[in-house]
Amino acid sequence: MSQDWQFVAIFLILSPIFPAAPVILNHLLGPKKPNPIKQQTYECGIETVGSSWVQFKVQYYIYALVFVIFDVEAVFLFPIAAAYGQLTLFSIFSVALFIFLLADGLAYAWGRGALEWI
């Protein structure tokens, strides 16, 4: 197995080279005449008003939260799906219960209106 992951490790180490080459080449080839106007942040033709910090909706946070729950669920479900051939009917129904409980959570969030984009 380490043999398999050797490829991934090499990939991880080598892959920054591929985006780095064009970016560095760009840095070398491109003109360098910076001035304050040019480096201003872009905002539809007018100067930037205030800092870029804006109050964000709690909605984004809720989506991320629900996602975390489902992500953890996936970690459980993937090995079970891979072992599907060796499972008994009892196991299948315990998986169904597992999924049902999570669907319950989703239904709660739905009923509470937490999935609504406001």
Binding site: P79, I80, A83, Q86, S91
Partner: peptide
């Protein structure tokens, strides 16, 4: 080992 893990999650 992954398959064993998955099986033992749901075996009685």
């Amino acid at each position: 080992s992954v398959v064993v893990m998955g099986r033992s999650f749901v075996s009685s």
